[in-house]
Design a protein around this nucleic acid. Structure first.
Length: 604
RNA sequence: GGCCUCGUAGUUCAAUGGAUAGAACGGAAGUUUCCUAAACUUUAAAUACAGGUUCGAUUCCUGUCGAGGCCA
């Protein structure tokens, strides 16, 4: 990456610098940050807008008077950047000169990775955990939101110069996997993915559903015999058998361990297959079966240092009132661990492995908000300074119209099924539109996958992670309008123009380009905003602003494409300029979509 | 009961405290001798409610109602 990649020309900063100079010239006791800067709204003439209310109060001039003064100075002293201005109410709208706009465009074209920041070699890493499945069922739509978010955030972090280690923490032990194991054993261990042709994670997931049916039936029976609900749930035979299995596992019973290994492998193979289809690879996989004992040690140490205490009932607890939280149990009275026990262990192990870290990010649903507050508070109490750099990337659940998805009741949208459906829809639409001509079978399939997945990823990533998503399986995900395929289509269209243009270099323009039109101005304004959008995504750990930016850019380009001719433009200088503008859009769409984990086609 | 999220057109989403609240889908009407019509243009339609802070509130604060979640 070159120097230019690191220092982008930034109109807002230029305006601030110019303002500061002017203010010292005229002896107004104001600073540039008394003037909030925003992009000028489309209905008004101009590119950047200064809000004058705050400053005008301070210098006892009316907003229009102050605006007039500043506007005049700016356009006079910095005429190379700012050509004219207009005051509407308390707003000073400033227009760029066409020369400045063209400079912006060529600056953007000169940077191979405009908006990106090079990664410093010795930078401490950010550890980013996402996916984190249980090994008792296949990945479903909820996991997909997690995976898409985590993947996009990892790419955005890297684009912003961070070194990232992505990790998948697999919850491969516990009662849930024992439930599936139990049913498989009852089924005389006969079925395998090989002899049934069922993908391993689905096979194990089926047993999990079967367990739930059996268990529920037993609970009902017990209740019919007069037991209350809690008693029935505790004493049903199925759950007792599953618990027994868990105890045998913890004791290290070789037969149980063997079965456990067998079934886990089936599920993990299934996961790897789905993840590979999604083009997701983790830098590191952790398994809770390897880390869960680690937490207990940390608790013992904390107990010795009096950070934790033993309650009268024998459990180990921590008082978090110093952090505005309650008391929390860390080890049960019988010495067994709770969820947070192993999370503490995992965090400490990671810290040991990576030493100096920039931060740790956990991509986990918002039902765990409280859990992570507690975890970070405990790490802080244990005296780890990096606790303050731990973040919970929290996101809303994906729900069906009927409510929450529940694996054990079979009311889930499986990731594999959804991906297949998206593929089929993409195939159907593409074929209908007759866009498959000249493509080999392999190329066609690659295209359908790209479009289907693009639609799905975009559908999820354009939404603010805080919000829950309601997914209605009866309504298919759109391929028109504010969607991934719309942006992919725009890219394909751009590539087509560029191919036909014959251009390979996009160098500096001749000076005599005619005046730019509104579309061209708007596009350039979008393009140069890219770096600040990335910064926003980084700060919020939220890919949605980028998704929306790329849509706006595509929309603006399509409008331009419709209203103005690029290759048929008669004026040479203008045609050159437009081809360059088109190229810049294409590159930004491609790079930006890549950050969302969405590939864009050369034609579609 | 305590705490946390979220409430914007019929639906799905936008809007660093700023201007006339933007889009998309769906509805209505239109655009193809021209660079890809998965496109473009026009049109009807929304800030849950009540207060407060502010020159200015969808955004911040308080309360009410509603949806979801966590803790006990």
């Amino acid at each position: 990456m070159t120097e230019a990649d690191l220092k982008h020309i930034n109109p807002k900063e230029i305006l601030w610098a110019s303002l500061n100079e002017i203010l010292s010239d005229v002896n107004l006791s104001l600073k540039a940050d008394d003037f909030p800067i925003q992009n000028t709204r489309k209905e008004f003439k101009g590119d950047l807008t200064l809000t004058l209310f705050k400053a005008s109060k301070a210098v006892k001039l009316s907003p229009p008077e102050l605006g007039q003064k500043i506007g005049e100075y700016l356009t006079k002293k910095f005429s190379e950047y700012f050509s004219e201005f207009e005051i509407v109410q308390g707003f000073l709208n400033i227009s760029f000169s066409d020369d400045f706009r063209k400079r912006l465009l060529y600056e953007i074209l000169q940077c191979e990775n405009f908006g990106f920041v090079a990664v410093a070699e010795n930078a401490p890493p950010v550890l980013l955990e996402y996916c984190s499945p249980n090994t008792n069922k296949p990945l479903h739509l909820g996991h997909l939101r997690n995976i898409f978010l985590g993947d996009a955030v990892s790419r955005i972090l890297r684009a912003c110069g961070k070194k990232v280690v992505t990790m998948n923490l697999v919850n491969d032990r516990g009662i849930h996997i024992c439930k599936s194991m139990l049913m498989w054993m009852k089924d005389s261990r006969s079925k395998t993915p090989e002899n049934t042709g069922i993908k391993g994670d689905f096979l194990v997931g089926d047993y999990y559903v079967q367990f739930d049916k059996l268990y529920k039936g037993q609970v009902e029976q017990l209740m019919a015999q007069g037991k209350n609900k809690e008693e029935a749930e505790q004493n049903a035979e199925a759950i007792r058998e599953a618990r027994e299995l868990l105890r045998s596992w913890e004791k290290g019973d070789p037969t149980v361990l063997q079965d456990w290994k067998t079934m886990n492998k089936w599920v993990l193979d299934g996961f790897r297959q789905t993840l590979s289809r999604l083009n997701i690879a983790f830098d590191r996989w952790d398994f809770e079966s390897n880390t869960y004992l680690e937490g207990k040690k940390a608790i013992e140490e904390g107990l010795q240092k009096n950070i934790f205490f033993r309650a009268p009932d024998g459990s180990v607890r921590v008082d978090l009132s110093s952090h505005g939280l309650d008391e929390k149990v860390l080890l049960r009275s019988d010495g067994t661990s709770v969820y947070i026990t192993q999370d503490i262990g995992t965090a400490l192990m990671r810290y040991r492995d990576y030493g100096n870290i920039e931060g740790m990010i956990y991509t986990v649903g918002n039902e765990q908000d409280y859990h992570f507050k507690v975890l970070f508070a405990i790490l802080d109490k244990l005296g780890y300074s990096w606790a303050s750099r731990c973040k919970h990337l929290s996101y809303g659940m994906v729900e069906l119209p009927t409510g929450k998805m529940k694996s054990r009741e079979g009311t889930v949208v499986d990731a594999d099924d959804l991906l297949d459906e998206m593929f089929e829809t993409a195939k159907e639409i593409t074929t209908e539109l007759g866009k498959t001509e000249g493509l080999s079978e392999e190329e066609k399939n690659e295209l359908y996958e790209m479009i289907g997945q693009g639609a799905l990823r975009y559908f999820i990533l354009k939404v603010d992670p805080h919000k829950k998503i309601v997914f209605d399986p009866r309504e298919s995900i759109d391929f028109n309008g504010h969607t991934g395929p719309f942006i992919q289509y725009t890219h394909a269209r751009i590539r087509s123009v560029i191919r036909k243009s014959g251009y390979e270099k996009f160098d500096l323009p001749t000076d005599n380009t005619p005046m730019l039109n509104e579309s061209e101005k708007h596009i350039i304004n979008r393009l140069y905003s890219f770096p600040e959008i990335l910064v926003e995504c980084l700060q919020e750990l939220n890919p949605a602003p980028l998704a929306n930016h790329l849509y706006e850019l595509s929309k603006e380009f399509n409008r331009f494409y419709h209203d103005h001719s690029i290759l048929n433009e008669q004026n040479n200088a203008l045609r050159h300029f437009r081809v360059c503008l088109t190229e810049a859009c294409g590159r930004q769409i491609k790079k930006g979509m890549e950050l969302l984990g969405i590939r864009v086609p050369e034609r579609m």
